[in-house]
Computed example of a mutant assay.
Amino acid sequence: MSGNTLELDELERDALTELVNIGVSRAAASLRKMVNKQVILSVPSVEVVTRKSAASLIGQRESETLIAVQQQFEGPFSGRALLIFPESNGLSLIRAIVGDDMTEADLIEMEDEALAETGNVILNGCLGSMANMLQHTLKMSLPNVRRGDSALLFETLVSGGEESFVLFLYINFSVRERDIRGYIAMIMDLPSLENLKQLIASFIDRVMTENE
Rank of each mutant, 00 (worst) to 15 (best):
N4T: 11
L6P: 05
E7S: 09
E12Y: 00
T17K: 14
E18D: 14
L19H: 11
L19P: 03
V20R: 03
V20Y: 04
N21G: 06
V24H: 04
S25D: 02
A28R: 02
A28M: 06
A29G: 14
S30W: 03
L31E: 09
R32Y: 03
K33G: 12
K33S: 13
K33P: 04
M34K: 08
K37E: 10
V39W: 03
I40Q: 08
L41A: 04
L41D: 04
L41P: 05
S42I: 09
V46Y: 13
V46N: 08
E47M: 11
R51C: 12
R51G: 13
K52E: 11
S53V: 15
A54C: 12
A55H: 01
A55V: 05
S56K: 11
S56R: 10
L57M: 15
Q60A: 11
E62T: 14
T65H: 09
A68S: 15
Q72E: 13
G75T: 05
S78H: 03
G79P: 07
L82V: 05
L83I: 00
L83C: 03
I84S: 00
P86N: 01
S88K: 15
S88F: 13
N89K: 10
L91F: 15
R95T: 15
I97A: 11
I97Q: 01
I97F: 02
V98T: 06
V98H: 01
G99M: 10
D100P: 12
D101W: 10
T103F: 02
T103A: 15
T103N: 12
D106I: 05
L107W: 02
E109S: 14
E111K: 14
D112I: 03
D112E: 13
E113F: 06
A114Y: 01
L115D: 08
T118I: 00
G119M: 07
G119V: 09
I122F: 01
L127M: 13
S129Q: 04
A131I: 03
N132C: 07
L134P: 07
Q135C: 03
T137E: 10
M140F: 10
S141M: 01
S141K: 00
L142R: 06
V145M: 14
V145F: 14
R146H: 14
R147F: 10
R147E: 09
L152I: 12
L153T: 03
T156S: 15
T156F: 12
S164G: 12
F165N: 10
Y170E: 13
N172A: 08
S174Y: 04
R176N: 15
R176S: 13
R178K: 11
R178E: 12
I180V: 11
Y183K: 01
Y183W: 13
I184P: 07
I184F: 08
I184E: 03
A185G: 14
I187G: 01
I187R: 04
S192F: 06
L196V: 07
K197I: 05
K197C: 03
Q198A: 02
L199F: 04
I200A: 11
S202G: 12
F203S: 06
I204M: 04
I204Q: 06
I204F: 08
R206A: 08
N211F: 12
E212M: 09
